[in-house]
Amino acid sequence: MQHISIDPSNVHPPTRDGSVEELSQSLPSAKASRTHPSKSGGENASIYFVGTATTILEWHGVRIMTDPNFLHAGDHVHLGPGVSSMRKTNPAVDLHDLPRIDLVLLSHYHGDHFDHHVEASLRRSLPIITTSHARSILTSKGTDSFTNIYDLEPFQQMMITIKADGYGPAKAPPALRVTGMPGKHVPVAKPIEKLNEFVGAIPPTNGWLLELGHGHDAGDFVPGYRIYITGDTLLVDELKEIPRRYGGPGKNIDLMLIHLGGTTVPHPSLSPFTLMVTMDAAQGVELMRLVKPEVTIPIHYDDYDVFASSLEEFKGAVEKAGFNGGGGGVVFLDRGEEYRFAVRQ
Rank of each mutant, 00 (worst) to 15 (best):
L106G: 12
D67T: 10
A120H: 10
V77S: 13
P37W: 11
R123A: 13
T54G: 04
A53M: 02
S132E: 07
A120S: 09
H60I: 00
P154L: 10
V50A: 10
D112E: 14
G82I: 06
T89F: 07
I160W: 09
S29V: 09
L126Y: 03
P68W: 04
Q157V: 08
F114T: 04
W59N: 00
D144A: 14
N44H: 10
V83C: 05
R124N: 02
F49Y: 15
D144R: 15
D67P: 04
L138Q: 01
F114Q: 03
A45M: 05
H78K: 11
H113Y: 13
S132L: 05
S84V: 07
Y150Q: 14
R135I: 00
T143W: 05
I47Q: 01
G42L: 13
R63S: 00
Q156D: 15
V104T: 12
S107T: 13
G80I: 05
H72Y: 10
G41K: 14
D67W: 08
I101D: 04
S125A: 08
F114S: 02
K141A: 06
G51T: 05
L57Y: 01
D94M: 09
E43K: 12
H78A: 09
F155K: 06
G142S: 08
E58A: 09
T35D: 05
I47L: 14
I129A: 07
R63Y: 03
P37H: 08
M86T: 15
A32L: 12
V77E: 14
S38T: 15
T130W: 00
E153N: 13
D102R: 00
